[in-house]
Design a protein around this nucleic acid. Sequence first.
DNA 1: CACACTCCTAACCGATCGGTAGATTTTTCG
DNA 2: CGAAAAATCTACCGATCGGTTAGGAGTGTG
Lengths: 197, 197
Amino acid sequence: MTRRREGATSELTLIERARRTQLIEVTIELVADRGYAGASLAAIAERAGITKAAVLYHFPTKAAVVRAAHEHALAALVADVAAAVEAAAPANRPAAYVRSMVGHLREHPRHTRMIIEAMVHDDGEHDPAARWGPLAQLIDAARLARGASGDIDPRTTAIIVGGGIDAIVAEQLHDPDYDTATAAEHLVDMLETTISR
Amino acid sequence: MTRRREGATSELTLIERARRTQLIEVTIELVADRGYAGASLAAIAERAGITKAAVLYHFPTKAAVVRAAHEHALAALVADVAAAVEAAAPANRPAAYVRSMVGHLREHPRHTRMIIEAMVHDDGEHDPAARWGPLAQLIDAARLARGASGDIDPRTTAIIVGGGIDAIVAEQLHDPDYDTATAAEHLVDMLETTISR
DNA sequence: CACACTCCTAACCGATCGGTAGATTTTTCG
DNA sequence: CGAAAAATCTACCGATCGGTTAGGAGTGTG
């Protein structure tokens, strides 16, 4: 059956932990380098220096490996952004969101490609609101804190800004010299102008 | 050899033209429905009602079919946007670009997914500047026409707005009821504010 | 020593991939 | 009508896909 035993994650062997971590890392690398299609079971195994069967000893299916890799990259991003946002005053949180998002993705380009690939290829149910929802809430709260009264739609603003973040990050993927920090400030300016009305 | 004869496109048989058109259409549909990975030669052939060999009689490789489908979708988009842009006064062209882009993609959702898939999966050389370059030029020209003097970076503005367009269109793909026209106006507002400084 | 458990390899499985070869049907045209 | 050309089908190819099976090396542990 080649089954993994059940039980808490903390009960995993040292080797088990190390392998899982390694497999997640090489999968992220592979997806970043050659896209989803290039991340075959054989390719993952080869880059990890083991056989396909060994990979499937630590994960039930290939999909589980990719899912774990995606969740790993996403969790790091969310943790980073959440920390930055919570450290800021409500009125400044949308800006903090943009800056930390761009910053994190700049520092982790591989994670970035992994996340992008997963977003495009999420054949299956995945709530798109999960992407812009949090930002929309931050915008709402910031407008409340500032007493802004214009009739903007937080959802649309969040969608647009989210797209802008993606585009800035994608540009840096093609041109490593692109100044994403300045671009982020540019985007923050546009956002601030919009939500302060 | 199963080779196609050389010669101008206009010298193609009626059947040849019809098949090529049909194959391009079903490929766009297939990519839109099931992504790049789902657009296999067998799937394309089946949906067209012929065999794999027949598909490869009209196109040299599967990659050529996909490429043709992509170029078809892209050409329609470019033609549409170019017409709308040229019909506007220089000062209004960035706004015309945004509106026509969102409008075209709303009216051709299948083309949209085809183009998005191709962008993400363009394993190979593809100049990213081709995407935001034209908009950056329109922004530059509009600022000149208006006598704006702020120190904005047209490239970054174009990248951000381009990302916003993508995000609006992507949102509509998930939620067909999303009001992209209003969202486009929202984006136009942000853009106008930025470039008028 | 013997048994159990963890971790792994070699070999194989059926399915599907893109593509090819050759026979065969359909269309075109003198 | 009859032959050439165009269009298509059947059948196959090697490669690769994700996944399975059986077994064995290494490490304790009774």
